[in-house]
Design a protein around this nucleic acid. Sequence first.
DNA 1: CCGATGTTACGGTTGCCGCCGAAACGTCGC
DNA 2: GCGACGTTTCGGCGGCAACCGTAACATCGG
Lengths: 231, 231
Amino acid sequence: MSAPGSFVEISALAGDPARALMLHALMDGRALTAGELARVAGITPQTASGHLARLATAGLVTVERQGRHRYHRLAAPSVARMLEAMMQVASELAPPRPVPTGPRDAAMRTARTCYDHLAGRLGVAITDALVSRQFVELAEDAGSVTPGGVAFLADLGIDTVPLSTARTRRVLCRPCLDWSERRPHLAGTLGAAVCARALSAGWVRRIEGSRALSVTRPGEGVFRDAFGIVL
Amino acid sequence: MSAPGSFVEISALAGDPARALMLHALMDGRALTAGELARVAGITPQTASGHLARLATAGLVTVERQGRHRYHRLAAPSVARMLEAMMQVASELAPPRPVPTGPRDAAMRTARTCYDHLAGRLGVAITDALVSRQFVELAEDAGSVTPGGVAFLADLGIDTVPLSTARTRRVLCRPCLDWSERRPHLAGTLGAAVCARALSAGWVRRIEGSRALSVTRPGEGVFRDAFGIVL
DNA sequence: CCGATGTTACGGTTGCCGCCGAAACGTCGC
DNA sequence: GCGACGTTTCGGCGGCAACCGTAACATCGG
């Protein structure tokens, strides 16, 4: 079969609460140190280091050393996709969600990163705008960009040409279920390009120590004028 | 966050060798009894029953009783997608595969089901044929059907109209990495429709007690004439 | 060269969980 | 109704692994 050994190994690794929290934290696509991940998981640095060594041995995360720091990140986009799929099932299976939204969660629900693309109300709103104007088409588990969408995105500085093999119809996006909005937002190559552009152009800024994003004043203007979004 | 409790619960459930084998067996989309799954996993029926009860409580599988049998199946397509994503990561992380192909595997490698769509050499060949004729376009994580593809598939009795919201461009397919061929095959709604048509039209037949499929004489003709495939 | 910080290695304790044997329950065929 | 079969429940055994002290290593700043 398809490496059942690796399958159970991966599942068992993700099945530990501490490791799950660390993988969760790494979902924003950035590289974190063992100490930061230990705080996130609520365990001592030694224990976190051991967990990360196992994750690295299994190939789920890669380690990159800079001076006395060792930065850990998810090893591949496929790992992030796997975690997304697991989170989607998890959200489907947890119907009772009377958890009140803490003040800390407010920023997360407004805008955040999901591995390499945008999520939260902003991510969903952008996706809705692109879909309603027929710039992007989404099905339950696939998506594509229309020629009009290519032009629209190019105006915003998001070039889709190098992302595909230069055809009129482009398949480089993918829906990703948003756990706070319970609706799909834009993922895949295009989602990553939009997120990268939003960060480099200063439309959004990372909030320190969190996956949450804050929308800047210029960003507000762009989202309002180009997408018709007022959060 | 997005129900971290459910996340670790799911991972831990999939992280047991016996349960992983059972989930693996359920990937063909059919419903199996506790006894059958016990044999697959190499454990006693009591143990299997306990495992299945936990999987059902968590919501990963659903139970359906008929007489003195209790049939278990995957609870939702999203669960199958999750398992697929995990298998994909597992296959990427298992580079050494010197395992010789046993005679039992031969049929599996030729053609088999992957949850609700076709896999193996047949599944990949069909996908290649659709892509090379520009009936379907696939990217790394998304796909779409061209207008010409809609017509071609309609000739084969595969109606794509009710599958989408009646537009010229259709996004209802998705690539799924094939563990034996190491190349993508057609999944998603369209993959399921093709598989269903192949089974109902008698182009392929299920091999008892396995996910493997045998290609019938009529099927050979259809695949050769319509797709140019000779296995 | 010397503290401070971050990371790795080692032992020991604790708890959880998978497994099976035995037995009870429900359903089907006669 | 009566055995036969599939399935579930209960009790107890065994093993694995997560966790934290403590301590030894690297690396950076002064």
